[in-house]
Every structure is written in C-alpha cells, then in structure tokens.
C-alpha cells in the first residue's frame, strides 16, 4: 500500500453543468476523460435504448414508487462521511443518473455521461445498505447496476476497471497470471510452508474431494502467504481439499460484474462451476 495519496489531492474543482450542486475535486482518469470525447448522441441513445428501452417490471416499479422521501440517505456511508452532502444520497445518485436519462429519453450529451459514470462507478459501492433503509424496499443498487451497464456499453468506465475486465477476457484472472506461473507459485508455497508444518501439501486437481478452494488472483500474485496459511489450516483440520489449475478458471473474483459485462461474467462463473463439477466437489470455498 505504498500509494501516494498526494497524487490525486488536487485543488481543482469539477462542476457539473447539469447539476449546480454537484461539485467535486477534479480527478484525472483516462477511462472517463478520454472516452467521453468519442461519444456521439446517436451512440448514447443506442446504449440508452439497449438498457432502458424495454419496459420491465423492476425498473417500472422502482421509478413509479419512489416518493423522494430521502430516507435512504442516512444509510449511505458516502453521504454520512461527506457532511451530509445532498448529492451523495442514494436517491440523489439515482436522480442524477437514471431519472435524468429517462427524463431526456437518452438524448443527452457527453458531459452528462461523464457525471453519470463518475457517480455510478466511484461514488457507489453497490453495498445494498440503502435497500434495507428504504421504506418501500426499492432495489436502488439495481438501478445503479443498470446505469453501469449503460456506461459500459459506451466504454465510459474508469480505466483500471476496464483494464481489469480486459485482463479477465484474456486470461480469466485479474492479474495476467499464466497457468505455469500459477502452478509454480503453488509449489513454491508448498515448499515454504513445509518448514512450519510437516509434510504440507497443496493438492492440485484432485477428484472427489470435500472442498475445492478457489483463490483470488491477487493471492498467488501479491499475497502468496494466504495460500500456505489456508493449506496449513486444512491440513491441521484434516480436510480433503484441492485447488484447481486446469482451464485457467481458478480466480474467484469476478471483476466484470462491477461494470456489468455480462458475457465475461458468465464465462467466469461457468468456468468455475464446470471445474468444480468435474472434480465432483461437495463444497466450493471461495476466498475471503
């Protein structure tokens, strides 16, 4: 965590041309600032039609039930942390994104798309807390997810998120780790762990086991100690377990979900599912 926080501590202020209340520090992100230059009104409208064009029960119920009471605001940590700034309230986020799009029927310019992308990608964690506080139980995060999908179709996504998605497309894990690197790491951790626990084993692709453990890709890459810790716990408890190395589908994180790239998302889930089914596992333990 040697990230220099001062980098982004910029004094410049970004003011939305649509919502005078929406004032934020300026943060440069090529994924947002550069991609909006490519947008045309036709593209935006097409993406809008693809996501919001068809009337569905969930969108209809949410939009027609919300009575703008603002009770969800107290649930959002962004709102509470920023001195109750009205623009951070969940309902305000929905107002500035989905309602604005629906009100204008998708006929908006790139400036609004920037605001929208900034709100849905960097100011909402999809934590579902607001839904527990809404008197109507509206699934606010569902709307945020739809808007994320809209932004993804336009390619207006924070650079790192988009980059990770492409990593997933190419390698099915988030850190560009090849199969051989992965197997190598497992052997190395096995060897290291043996000094602390006798005969430590990290089984690979063992069939008919009790537990299949899928790590997060960052574990073999940046936090390899997790692997031998897990191995030690399982060994001491006498669990019959295995890790998967075949077919590349071993990373249990699913970053494409965050930008609603359904295709890659499905590929990953399906890959993990098939791997586990092939090994006839009873339990699937995903990483912490």
């Amino acid at each position: 965590m040697a990230i220099k926080l001062e980098i982004s501590e910029e004094k410049e202020v970004y003011r939305s041309s649509y919502f005078p209340e929406y004032v934020r520090p300026k943060i440069y992100d090529p994924g947002l600032d550069e991609t909006i230059k490519r947008l045309t009104p036709e593209k935006i409208e097409k993406a809008y039609q693809a996501v919001f064009g068809k009337e569905t029960a969930r969108i209809k119920a949410i939009v027609e039930t919300c009575i703008h009471c603002g009770l969800c605001a107290e649930a959002c940590q962004w709102y509470l942390s920023n001195d109750r700034d009205p623009t951070y309230a969940p309902v305000a986020k929905v107002k500035m994104t989905a309602w604005e799009l629906m009100k204008r029927k998708g006929k908006v310019d790139a400036g609004l798309v920037y605001d929208i992308a900034r709100i849905v990608f960097t100011e909402c964690n999809i934590c579902h807390r607001c839904s527990l506080y809404c008197p109507f139980g509206l699934d606010i995060t569902f709307i945020i997810g739809l808007v994320r999908r809209f932004c993804f179709l336009l390619g207006v996504v924070p650079q790192r998120m988009f980059d990770q998605n492409q990593t997933f497309m190419a390698t099915a894990n988030q850190v560009w780790m090849s199969q051989s690197d992965y197997i190598d790491t497992l052997f190395w951790r096995e060897e290291e762990g043996m000094y602390e626990l006798k005969n430590l084993r990290i089984p690979m692709d063992k069939e008919g086991v009790e537990v299949v453990w899928f790590p997060l890709a960052a574990e073999p890459k940046t936090g390899p100690y997790h692997i031998d810790r897990i191995a030690k716990i399982f060994q001491v408890a006498g669990v019959d377990w295995t890790m998967v190395t075949m077919n590349d589908y071993w990373d249990s994180s699913n970053m494409p979900m965050f930008i609603r790239d359904f295709f890659t998302m499905q590929r990953i889930v399906k890959g993990l599912y098939e791997n586990a089914a092939r090994l006839r596992a009873k339990k699937l333990v995903l990483t912490e």
């Binding site: 949410i62 039930t65 919300c66 809404c134």
Partner: peptide, 20 residues
C-alpha cells in the same frame, strides 16, 4: 401518478423481502 406507491409498496417490499 406516483401515488400508486399505495399499492406498489406491497410489491416492491415483497421483492426486497424475498431477496433478503
């Protein structure tokens, strides 16, 4: 108008309740 929240309350609540 949005005063239908009188009825929709039961639907949206049921949906969230089932999800939770």
């Amino acid at each position: 108008t949005r005063l239908t929240h009188m009825y929709y309350f039961f639907f949206t609540r049921a949906w969230m309740a089932s999800q939770t």
